[in-house]
């Protein structure tokens, strides 16, 4: 079990795009994953306000959901996104780190179902939520 968690962490941190966005895996295991992404000017979507682009939040959601699937005890190996829906509640406050936490709440032999929430320092008001279906790759 420990090996798989370690493998997932290494796998996530080896992803070139996760590195390019400055993603950090802070927790993983038993179908749950948490990822942090520090504020960076290159991720800005609205130059007027300095608010991070929704796309960067989406990339983080997708990575975090994939990590949650791979850490699930019933997932034999890798995964790929089948579909992902993202709802934006509000703009992330400029300058603050964004944290995403994802849960794989159900898994079958071929499909994993995941949901995720992203917040900034004001953890009670979500920035965005996501839900999606992922493949379960057979070994």
């Amino acid at each position: 079990m420990v090996d798989k968690v370690e493998l997932a962490r290494k796998f996530i941190e080896a992803i070139p795009h996760a590195k390019a966005l400055g993603m950090r895996l802070t927790d993983i295991g038993a179908g749950n994953a948490q990822i942090e992404m520090a504020y960076d000017k290159k991720l800005v979507g609205d130059p007027k306000t300095g608010v991070v682009h929704g796309g960067a939040v989406s990339a983080m959601m997708d990575t975090c959901c994939g990590a949650a699937v791979m850490s699930h005890p019933s997932a034999p190996g890798g995964t790929a996104t089948i579909d992902l829906r993202i709802d934006y509640m509000r703009a992330a406050t400029p300058g603050q780190t964004i944290r995403t936490s994802a849960t794989c709440y159900h898994i079958t032999r071929s499909v994993a179902f995941v949901r995720a929430t992203a917040t900034d320092d004001d953890a009670d008001r979500p920035v965005a939520t996501a839900s999606g279906a992922f493949t379960v790759e057979r070994r």
């Binding site: 070139p16 795009h17 390019a20 990339a59 997708d62 996104t81 992902l84």
Partner: peptide
Amino acid sequence: DKLIGNPFLPAIHGGVTAA
């Protein structure tokens, strides 16, 4: 290269596609 999500295939990151 920085758009890659799966270095073994390799494939574009699903988050990049979404963005």
